[in-house]
Simulated scan of single mutants.
Amino acid sequence: MNNDSLSAKPHYPILDGLRGVAAIIVVTFHLTEPLGTGHLDILVNHGYLAVDFFFLLSGFVIGYAYDDRWHNMTIGTFFKRRIERLQPMVVLGMVLGAIGFYFTDSTIWPLIHTIPLWKMLLVLLIGCTILPVPLALDIRGWQEMHPLNSVGWSLFFEYIANILYAIGIRKLSKTALGLLVLIAAVALAHLAITSPAGDVSGGWTLNAEQVRVGITRTMYPFFAGLLLSRTAKPTHIKHAFLGCSFLIASVLYMPRIGGTDHVWMNGVYESVCIIIVFPLIVYLGASGVIHTQAERRICKFLGDISYPLYLVHYPLVYFYVAWISNHQGVTLVQAWPSALLILLGGITLAYASLKWYDEPVRKWLRTKLG
């Protein structure tokens, strides 16, 4: 997920706002996830689909921002700008995860107290590059690419999509890109419908099966977003922010479909959401009209905190998950005050990170990298 924009072009403030809405829903998903017993009964059941929405938004914004600039921009310049935008918060998220690591020792992560400091610091160093760590360096025990900040996996695939775009896919005609997107859509639907759990959840482990999930989840939405940026002609739609926010929340908060007997039905639902509904939401958001200064400020605030919130919330969630695992039987009624504190604390930390770290570091990197 990212927030590239060009001052010379019209901006899409509603898309910024929707990115923030989706980021907040991701946090609520991660806060309700440990209270469920599995995929079927998580309160925010489809919250993980926000990642697929982020990929689609990223593809749209990358196409809009860069497609017409390659006549005077090199691949190196493109990568410098992406690193400037993405990497500072990646580093901060990993550092926060490292700071809290030894304080989240719990029954769910019995490995933590056995991990030597040098090994944790090595994982931190690798994590700051966003490269995935091998399973031999799984210091938490969840088989994650980024054990210090779980959400790093999606940034790894975001970079892969950016690389594919820059080295070749940007040159494809609309027809060729459309064919690629169609193939990617079929692969995504096949994954969702045939997976054992009947969903697209996954992509955060460095093994063949999970890397396939990550690539499949990235290819369709990112390049569908790119295609949308090239083909869509936004109109003027009233109340788009409110309507699109309701739509994205409805999709992500939708309960599980099909139960244990018909898991494929949930796969069909997720395929329709990612392949059809998400592009529709982005199109409507791009077509939307801001009516009031208050709405503009809300969209700006949500857009500003979206990426920092995504990167800093999970180091806080680790404490919450540890607390729940150490107090078996915690209910939603008992957990919601702590969950609300994590949510509000995450938003506050995200805004502080933006103003005191991310923006100054990006400004410094622009002067250094040129």
Score class of each variant (00 low, 15 high):
A232D: 09
C273K: 04
Y320W: 06
S250A: 15
T216C: 05
I281F: 11
L247C: 14
T331N: 01
P234K: 04
A232L: 14
S325A: 15
G303E: 04
A232T: 12
G243C: 07
S338V: 01
E270D: 05
F241Q: 08
S250Q: 01
H262G: 00
N326W: 10
H291M: 00
G329W: 12
I305D: 04
K238Y: 04
T292Y: 01
Y269C: 01
V330W: 02
L227G: 02
I257Y: 08
G259L: 03
Y314D: 00
H239F: 11
V321S: 05
D261Y: 06
V330Q: 03
L316P: 04
I305G: 06
Y351V: 00
Y318V: 02
L341Y: 11
H313F: 08
I281W: 12
K355I: 04
V333Y: 05
K300C: 00
A322T: 05
I276F: 15
S353P: 10
Y269V: 06
V317D: 00
T216W: 12
I298K: 05
A249E: 04
V251Y: 06
Y220V: 02
T331K: 10
P315E: 02
V333L: 07
D261W: 00
L284A: 15
S250Y: 10
N266L: 00
Y307P: 10
L228T: 14
K355R: 15
H262N: 14
A352T: 13
P315R: 05
F222T: 07
L280R: 02
V277I: 15
V272C: 10
R256Q: 10
G346N: 12
V268M: 07
Y310F: 15
Q328W: 05
M254E: 00
S229N: 06
L242W: 09
L309C: 11
Q334R: 11
F301R: 08
A335W: 07
P234D: 03
P315D: 03
E295H: 03
P315N: 03
T331A: 02
F301T: 12
T235C: 00
Y314L: 01
G329V: 06
L302G: 02
R296N: 13
L332N: 05
L226Y: 05
Y351S: 01
F246L: 15
I248F: 11
Q334L: 01
T235P: 02
I248D: 09
L341G: 03
L309F: 14
I290V: 15
Q334K: 13
K300D: 06
I248Y: 11
P234F: 09
L349G: 08
D304F: 00
G225R: 09
Y320D: 00
A224E: 11
D261N: 14
S325V: 00
T260E: 09
Y310S: 03
S271Y: 11
Q334G: 02
A335T: 05
K355H: 11
Y269I: 00
S250N: 01
L228A: 07
G259F: 06
M265R: 11
G258M: 03
F278Q: 05
D304I: 06
G285T: 09
Y351E: 10
A240I: 04
